[in-house]
């Protein structure tokens, strides 16, 4: 494991912790898209189908369990926790799941490395992860007051993707394995979706101003 991969995983973990902090401690999910959180739960459920059959390392198993457990508990909190649920911006969070899930499923059935159930599900999870942030970005654009934790959460998620790209570049030059088009293109698309957000995030940081995305 190289430093970019570890840093990527740690920023991913930090993003989840920031979100859990907001939800669990402040008891608020204002500005957080339930749609995106549900899509992430689906991403991890379909990607880690082999969690108990394909052992890679203690680290991998623990991290998979953390991402699975946290994503489903975040969804539960927003939907079922009395106080947290009250802060959910339901009327603003209007993105339709199916517009995202169906194209990803069709694409995974058409473009995959092997046509088996597990492989298609794994590929589907890659495509889905690439676009799962869209409802969250739409909600951010509609939110007038983006609080610090929400901004940091999205920033950390974007940073995790950018670091994974550096990890692939590093691995490409240091390990002799072939090219992983599906993983790379999906990952690149995912990272590009954050470009606009990054721009305004750094602007607000530089000017010491509140983060606001233009509509």
């Amino acid at each position: 494991m190289n430093i970019f991969r570890l840093a990527g995983d740690m920023t991913h973990l930090a993003s989840v912790l920031v979100l859990l902090l907001k939800i669990h401690t402040i008891k608020s999910c204002a500005g957080i898209s339930l749609k995106t959180q549900e899509l992430y739960a689906l991403v991890f459920a379909t990607r880690y189908l082999d969690i108990f059959t394909n052992y890679i390392s203690f680290y991998n198993t623990i991290m998979k369990l953390i991402f699975l457990g946290s994503s489903f508990s975040i969804v539960w909190y927003i939907k079922r926790h009395k106080i947290v649920h009250r802060s959910y911006d339901k009327d603003q969070d209007t993105f339709r799941h199916w517009f995202i899930v169906l194209p990803c499923l069709v694409l995974a059935l058409l473009i995959n490395e092997r046509f088996t159930f597990k492989e298609v599900m794994w590929t589907f999870s890659l495509y889905l992860e690439a676009v799962a942030i869209l409802p969250q970005l739409v909600l951010l654009q509609r939110t007038r007051n983006i609080d610090n934790l929400t901004g940091q959460y999205v920033f950390l998620l974007g940073a995790y993707r950018a670091l994974y790209i550096l990890n692939w570049i590093y691995r490409y030059f240091t390990e002799d394995h072939y090219i992983h088009w599906i993983t790379w293109i999906a990952g690149l698309v995912q990272t590009l979706l954050y470009a606009d957000f990054f721009y305004y995030y750094f602007q607000s940081w530089k000017n010491n101003a509140k983060l606001e995305l233009p509509a």
Partner: peptide, 10 residues
Amino acid sequence: SSSSVTKDEL
């Protein structure tokens, strides 16, 4: 498996 390399990632 053809894609085992990327499957060691999260």
